[in-house]
Amino acid sequence: MAKTARALKKSRPEEGDRISSLPDGVFSDIISLLPTEEGVRTQVLSSRWRHLWRSAPLNLDLHHYCRFAKHLLEASDILRILSTHPGPGRRCSIPTSDSALWLPLLKQLSLLNVTISESSLRSLLDGCPVLESLLLAENTCPCIQIMSGTLKSICSLVLEGPCYKS
């Protein structure tokens, strides 16, 4: 830089709730970096923040809850989180071994750019009894056989590597 202006003496802007004047997109970035439970807690910060967690990319990692928490997290809590988030999701890590995720009304599921094990995918699909449309794209998943009486369409956009059979 040829010329660096001397930083003007910083005039102290009024302190206080200055962060609330920032645009929503900024908060989405911030909230999606927080652990799940801390993201949830930002909803009570102010009326401005109430909807932000729900619209921010979802960072859902609930593994330690099911084992250690006093308030046992129930499947209905997870469903509420998923159903109140229009998306997108940054991360979704849910223990499914003890209590499988049950999505009785879900008809359409898209997994884009997701790393998922065969057993998790199978368990997820088992919990979707009326699933009609499944989109799998750019996922890291081993070969899997999908059995379903309701699926009408499976779209798999994988160029190489994993394969899907229906």
Binding site: I19, V26, I31, L33, L34, E38, R41, T42, V44, L45
Partner: peptide, 28 residues
């Protein structure tokens, strides 16, 4: 830079109760 400053604010919030966050961020 957007990621860097977002991470900074996230770090300021992490591990705090809602009341502590309000104070940290200067909410009334």
């Amino acid at each position: 830079l957007q990621s860097l400053v977002a991470k900074k604010v996230a770090d300021m919030i992490k591990g705090k109760s809602p009341m502590e966050i309000r104070r940290t961020l200067g909410f009334p």
